[in-house]
């Protein structure tokens, strides 16, 4: 954990500081922009949604509004996470939609310089490459910068269609 804040709030890559929330999925660290997050919740059992893609674990009642819960491990092509009491649900806004992201653990809220975010290595055909917009190299290891918009591009449309 970096344990420090930076005076930067820029979303573009550059000297500007950006706020990120780091979390773990399957032992690997990922992060998203804090601005994309509305809140963080503890895991509570979701109501399954029949006919949904396998990464959709079910639905959750978030103060009156029903939001889908996505198993991020499944979404990232890893073995699906088994949620427990210490699992967290990151409630994120993706293209005006609210989605619950199931992660194994929320690590930290960090402020990093945009320039620390390095581009991913060019690997054509790699499906994960599409979701990861950059990599943060830290003393604790590497943190993959996830692009939620890109991850849930189709999902949003689907949701809109459903809405």
């Amino acid at each position: 954990m970096l344990g420090q804040t930076f005076d930067t709030i820029h979303t573009d890559l550059g000297d500007a500081a950006i706020e990120i929330i780091a979390f773990e999925i399957g032992g690997q660290q990922f992060c998203v922009r804090t601005t994309a997050v509305r809140e963080i919740r503890g895991w509570s059992k979701s109501t399954p949604l029949p006919g949904s893609p396998h990464e959709i674990m079910g639905m959750m009642n978030l103060r009156g509004s029903i939001i889908p819960i996505v198993n991020m491990a499944s979404k990232l092509g890893m073995m699906p996470s088994e949620p427990d009491a210490r699992s967290a649900v990151i409630v994120a806004e993706v293209q005006n939609a609210v989605i619950g992201l199931l992660v194994d653990r929320v690590a930290d809220i960090l402020t990093v310089e945009a320039k620390m975010v390095q581009p991913t290595p060019e690997m054509r055909g790699s499906f994960t490459g599409g979701y990861v917009t950059g990599v943060l190299a830290t003393g604790q290891g590497m943190i993959c910068f996830l692009d939620l918009d890109r991850m849930f591009a189709g999902f949003t449309i689907e949701e809109e269609a459903a809405a």
């Binding site: 929330i21 804090t34 997050v37 509305r38 809140e39 963080i40 919740r41 503890g42 967290a88 929320v106 809220i109």
Partner: peptide
């Protein structure tokens, strides 16, 4: 922690 995180958010 969650509360703090949310506060942070």
């Amino acid at each position: 922690n969650l509360l703090a995180l949310n506060a942070g958010v």
